[in-house]
Amino acid sequence: MDQLELLKKNWKKLDHTLPKLSREEISNLIHKKSSSIVKWIFIISLLEFIIPNILLLFADFDKYTTETRALGLLNFSIIFNTITYIVIIYFIYRFYKNYQSISADSNPKVLMQNIIKTRRSVKHYIWFNLAMIPIISLVTLYKKFSTPDFLEKLPEGTSMLLVWFLTFVLVAVIVTLTWLFYRLLYGILLHKLKKNYNELVYSNGDDCG
């Protein structure tokens, strides 16, 4: 006899041996806090969004405006910040729409697809932020390096080529570390999901649905 058939035969009999929760116990359970992966992804996405923006609140805007004006970057800064905020508003809208689409009563394939889609939009937001780091820092430093003040302070005989080389290395290290941090964070969170999704959908390419 097929092993599973044996289990199936006994499956219904199990009902008498299972725990039986009272209405009161069920009522207590529904008021407990969920620890689902979606909740964690949502919390982390919010932190990714909120923390950098909170840090900006502490920035000295007067000093920033004076400095950018002195460097001749005021217009660039206004345009850059406007674009950044338009993009951020677009991403908030995307996050909201995506989280709305995640529903525990869709089928597992759709649920996993929606979570992956949600993560993808957060990933795009991170890529956008990572791309902004070299753009803003290199443009600002380019202007800064051309000021007489900076050139005066530079030890005699220092090649500008070396200064730029070190600048590029530093920016690259910052971008790479941030990228690695995100990879690790979501790697831990999404490892199981991706494995299950691939198994469900792509197993040996036999999916016909």
């Binding site: 620890s35 689902s36 992966i37 979606v38 964690w40 525990a104 009563d105 869709s106 089928n107 597992p108 649920l111 996993m112 979570i115 199981k192 999901l193 299950n196």
Partner: peptide, 17 residues
């Protein structure tokens, strides 16, 4: 039937312990 989906989704995807 509706419960099957939610319960399996939780066990497969959402549950993280």
């Amino acid at each position: 039937t509706w419960m099957y989906r939610v319960a399996l989704n939780t066990a497969i995807t959402l549950y993280r312990k």
